[in-house]
Amino acid sequence: MRQPGFAGLIDTYGSDAVPYVQLMGEDLSQLSGADIADIVHFLCVLHGRHPGVIDHAATKTVDDAAREWLIQATDGFAAERALLTKLTVAAGPISGVSLDDQSNAAVLGQRKALDMLSQSERAGCAIGAAIALVADWHCIRHILEQIALRIGVEARASILPNVEQTAALSEDLAATPALERALNFGAEQLLNQHRGLWQLLEARRNMRLSR
């Protein structure tokens, strides 16, 4: 059976399909300052450290078709990490939502899972995760740009590969059914971690609202 296409994976499992992200829409006015701080803080915990998913994938991928994309993606995500750091500082510290708040530990666990995924020896797995990160980041970047406007931080235009380039690379690399399965596995696992993060952020917001 043929695996679902790259676009289908992003549409089904990407951040755009998450209820909390859909709730934000084009307007973050319904989010509190604490909600905003949560978003940038935990995204920074997950993706703000170097080396990250794309950097690890670059050391695991020897395919010529991926080389130019990886160079652009590595440089582009370095700029995204810098933006995340600026937003995190400007948004201020997060606050606990319960006496036994394990949120930070949970996201550190997610980061460890992504480190393992992006260093996998299974051919196609690491680059699949990197491809999914770049594709999904375009949705996340839109949210970060809105946050930047709200808290007065300049957000320069992203220099990551665009969605079309990224989808084309995924198709080029899926030369065999085994490689396609590995690419999709890496992508799905990355997107699962993003969905888990959004669910955590929504739960924290709901806990604050219920007080």
Rank of each mutant, 00 (worst) to 15 (best):
V97A: 06
I143K: 14
A129F: 08
A113N: 07
C139W: 11
K112G: 14
R141F: 15
P93I: 04
V97K: 02
Q110E: 08
S98E: 10
E145W: 08
I127N: 01
E121M: 09
A105D: 15
S103Q: 01
N104F: 04
Q102P: 12
H138P: 01
W137T: 11
D100M: 15
H138C: 05
R141K: 15
I147Y: 02
A113M: 09
I143W: 09
I131S: 03
G128E: 01
E121R: 06
Q119E: 08
I140G: 07
A130H: 00
H138I: 04
A126C: 03
I143Y: 12
Q119Y: 06
A135M: 14
S95P: 01
I131K: 02
A113I: 14
Q102T: 12
G109P: 03
A123N: 12
A105Q: 14
S103V: 04
A113P: 12
G109V: 05
I147L: 08
H142I: 13
A123K: 11
D136N: 05
S120K: 03
I143L: 14
A126W: 06
A106Q: 12
D101H: 02
A132H: 15
L144I: 08
P93Y: 04
V97N: 00
P93G: 03
E145P: 05
G128D: 00
Q102H: 14
L114K: 02
D100L: 15
L144V: 09
V107I: 10
L144W: 02
G96L: 13
L99H: 03
D101A: 05
L117R: 09
E121F: 06
L144E: 06
L108F: 09
L144M: 06
W137Y: 08
A129T: 11
A113G: 11
V107E: 10
P93W: 07
Q102F: 12
A132C: 10
Q119W: 07
A126G: 04
G96R: 13
G96C: 13
V97L: 02
A130L: 00
A106L: 12
V134N: 07
G124D: 01
S103G: 03
R141L: 15
N104M: 04
G109H: 05
A135I: 13
D136R: 00
I127Y: 01
E145D: 08
I131W: 01
A135D: 13
A123R: 10
A126D: 01
A135F: 05
I147D: 11
C139Y: 13
Q146C: 06
D136W: 04
Q119K: 10
S98P: 14
A132P: 15
S103T: 04
V97H: 04
Q110W: 06
I127P: 00
I147N: 06
L99G: 09
